[in-house]
């Protein structure tokens, strides 16, 4: 696969390497995915008799939601810092920051599980009403994206890290691209949080 141009060096016209353009197109499709879910939410909400009532009844855990927002934003910044460390060729600093990202992502999932557990123990299931259905679907899909991120970051920290010694530029690009995805996951949560917890 070494024959494919622009895997590490940038294309003279677009100024991009393949992976970066690829991940942005993927994110554009993700925008459409979450956009469709958001328009579902809007359509159901304007059509509902008493959305506020359903929301109050569901009694989402606002403190946990807020803390999770902090956690995810922090994990976003550790990704930026880890990438910056790679540019400065400081691999051990990179590992600390990138490891912190995985830890924060796991922390997010733990809080999320606690939240789900609280809901289930109060017999709040997706089938109860459409607010809970939207809540579980959107946060569930978002959590799947977090898990996907953890898998990728875990790979790049573990077996994938060998590439740093053979093709450092390509490895740095991979980190940048992963970062873009991770920021997007953060961005989705930034919109999900007020949509579900505050409105």
């Amino acid at each position: 696969m070494d024959t494919i141009p622009y895997t590490t060096e940038v294309h003279p016209e677009t100024g991009l390497y393949n992976g970066k353009l690829g991940v942005w197109i993927f994110l554009a499709s993700e925008v459409m995915l979450f956009g469709a879910l958001f328009s579902t939410f809007v359509f159901l909400r304007v059509g509902a008799d008493d959305w506020q009532g359903m929301q109050t009844q569901a009694a989402l855990n606002l403190p946990i939601g807020t803390i999770n927002t902090f956690v995810l934003i922090t994990s976003s910044i550790t990704v930026v810092l880890s990438w910056a460390s790679l540019i400065e060729k400081d691999f051990s600093k990179f590992r600390r920051y990138f490891g912190a990202t995985v830890a924060l992502a796991l922390l997010f999932l733990i809080f999320k599980s606690v939240e789900y557990y609280q809901k289930f123990s109060h017999e709040a299931y997706p089938e109860n009403n459409n607010f809970l259905a939207v809540y579980f679907t959107l946060t569930g899909l978002h959590a799947l994206h977090v898990i996907g991120g953890i898998v990728v970051i875990g790979y790049l920290l573990g077996p994938g890290a060998k590439m740093w010694h053979t093709e450092p530029e390509r490895y740095t690009n991979r980190i940048e691209v992963t970062g873009l995805y991770w920021h997007f996951v953060d961005l989705v949560w930034i919109f999900l949080f007020p949509t579900l917890y505050l409105m």
Binding site: L16, W24, A28, V31, V42, I77, V79, L180
Partner: peptide, 30 residues
């Protein structure tokens, strides 16, 4: 987040174009 963490402020034209197209399709859907 988009502008600074994802560097959209300093990004290349091609990426703006991709996102613009996505935006153009997102608005009618909503």
């Amino acid at each position: 987040v988009g502008g600074f963490f994802m560097h959209l402020v300093w990004e290349k034209r091609t990426i703006y174009a991709v996102l613009l197209i996505a935006g153009l399709f997102l608005i009618p859907m909503l």
